[in-house]
Design a protein around this nucleic acid. Structure first.
Lengths: 226, 226, 226, 226
DNA sequence: AATGAATGAGTTTTCATTCAT
DNA sequence: TATGAATGAAAACTCATTCAT
């Protein structure tokens, strides 16, 4: 594996290599590739398999993507790009208790992301981070940090309104809200099949919110601390 | 670097091409393989690399492990086997508040597991679950379920003693305690390098415990619920 | 060798690195493999050599045969399958003296088999019997037993017509007719090159038939025996 | 396989490489190697297996034989050398009918050779002839030609005494006496296991002699021919 | 655009041979 | 002598990529 793609991509000059060149075809290929990459990993997935899953032949792949690595990049970009704006809009447009905002974000996350192809990304990018550093950097910036900022700003809102404890370190707290979401999504795509205990995501996330919101609520005691 | 070498026994002897190391060998190989498997993934790791990292030749690998897959299995087994008993003993031997037990467990987890090779396993097994189903089953049973049971019994202790809310679904709650630990460990081995925000695990886990314990504490309100 | 090459279409075109040959390919590979397997043995023959002899690259071999063993099986099956019917038809369609039938069979054997690729099989299957038991079973059933039955039924015909001695054990007698044919074929493909004495197969087989037919002819003496 | 050992062996100058250097050990090794070489073929037999079968370790093999090929040569030489004299003595010492001599030779062959390790050689040398040309030459001279000469001289004796037809080409006739012996021996070591029809060698050889001797007997008819 | 036969560099695996003990 | 851990060259096999059709 020599995917050390550390060359800075001057995105304004060269056209991005992953952009679809035709109509429906590339989309089907990306879809098929995503599924397989997540399940088996990048290296263990063969171009042959992707082609078969997409209903084309191996040669056709190379009509749309110059290499397997470029296909991988396309998969990541196309899956990642369009999603998180909705979260940012939710935060921007929200009035009322911050707890409600947090709950809305978590449920939106689950509906729009956790239950979608993007949730595959957590597992995929974690596994391939060392093999695709440049792509990982992109993912961290475009997804991880952006998601964390969304939740951090909801938390800040609650602190400012006096709902949440004032002593919360925002970044770590945001990480803690997100951890069960991300971990749950990855688990669903990997070990859950071998777990005798069922995992009902909505119940699980409700409980998470219940505990977490109590845990960060401003109380008489915490008020004294601040 | 001069010819006047003062050590008496270094005449013109060429160092032996290899030296028998017998007992230590398999362990060194497993160690090297673990590191590489976690970093690059199973398929992307070359037997050559493992050999070089272990300071032997490719052939030697096959002296101890009949195939790459068997080496992978050995890596998982040897890393997983001996750890979790300590957690079980902690629970069994504990007297006093259940909150203290939970905090002790989390810190023990971090010291004994999160900061050790075993923490690599979460990332590795998540990535390879589809490629190694039997091994994943083994891992789920020996690690995931066992860890969850440890935390679940600490939670039950707290419920029975009246410290924690009586309405906690034990399995999901245990999952929620564990999620930030596992997620944090995996993140450290993958994307953290690209994250401008530092992650101080002890601070992070203290905050987790702080929030979580407040969140499950029995209060006037929750008492009415039960 | 001059620049003045007169053929009009040989401008500066490099010949294509390869040409699709589709239907012919597997047959050519089997042919090349047979030759090498017989000469050097299964294990001592390298896939590389087979590829070179067939005018393709190693990879192409695996396009048609999933493994070296499967290629070996294909070689045996393709070589063995179509031949022996002719012998069976000869027996079925024959009228006249059984001695003539036997002579016709021996000569047909030599022309259709002994001098063809199938004669290689005796040497090959003898050498590899322990390494390919299922294939040996197939070969014994499809070739050895069938050939023996053909000769046995010719012998039976002669016994019934009173030409041949009535006390002949058919199976052993058939083995004895065949032994010089098979042995001769194997010898031709192995030691004959080192034998100063020439082996003229038609002379050799004529002598065989001459001696054998006298040896099994019904005489006054043997008539008394029966 | 690069066993093209065409260099002429100056046997009087260099000591033969295959000679045993110790007492019992080399004999056991040769014995084990013979068995395996015959069963699986030279290339398919691993030094490891030979060592295990001989009850020593791989390293020990190299104490006695400088290479696998040399071990093969030792196997052939030690198995082949001492046998055929007895046949030559039988011919030299015989008085009485040549038919009896021929029968005695065939039975001696079976008892001393066909049923012994030397009978393995036919299969082994046939299979490896292309890989060991020098050795095959040796085998042809020391075994094949010698055996043929023994039978040929018995036949000549019978012709001279008027028992056998005068028109027999000696070499081909000798080949025809031998073919069922050699073929039978090879078959026993390979396909017989898959043959539903039993092969009783003494019955088989008696029938062979019976037919063959009748076939070459001088009769009124053949007398006229001569 | 699409195919799929063919390639060839790279990967896992094997095994005869060596050599420190 | 004997061992057996270690080697390394060579073998089987894989698969991303190319290219004639």
């Amino acid at each position: 594996m020599n995917a050390s793609d550390t060359t800075p991509q001057s995105e304004s000059e060269t056209p991005p290599r992953w952009r679809r060149r035709s109509d429906a075809r590339p989309g089907e290929i990306v879809e098929a590739a995503l599924e397989l990459f997540v399940t088996k990993g990048f290296t263990a997935t063969r171009m042959d398999e992707i082609a078969r899953a997409a209903g084309v032949t191996k040669g056709t792949l190379y009509l749309y993507f110059p290499s397997k690595e470029d296909l991988f990049r396309a998969v990541v970009h196309e899956t990642v790009v369009p999603r998180l704006e909705m979260g940012e809009r939710l935060v921007a447009g929200h009035t009322g208790p911050a707890a409600d905002l947090l709950r809305a974000l978590v449920h939106a996350w689950w509906e729009k992301i956790g239950d979608s192809r993007l949730s595959y990304m957590a597992k995929l990018m974690t596994a391939e981070s060392a093999n695709f550093p440049e792509l990982t950097r992109y993912y961290v910036e475009e997804v991880v940090l952006r998601a964390r900022r969304i939740f951090a700003s909801a938390l800040r809102r609650g602190i400012e309104s006096g709902e949440f404890r004032g002593d919360l370190p925002l970044h770590d707290a945001a990480r803690l809200v997100l951890a069960p979401l991300v971990q749950g999504a990855a688990y669903r795509h990997s070990m859950l099949a071998f777990d005798p205990e069922p995992l009902e995501m909505t119940t699980y996330l409700d409980l998470h919110m219940d505990i977490f919101l109590r845990g960060i609520a401003k109380t008489a005691e915490t008020e004294t601390d601040a």
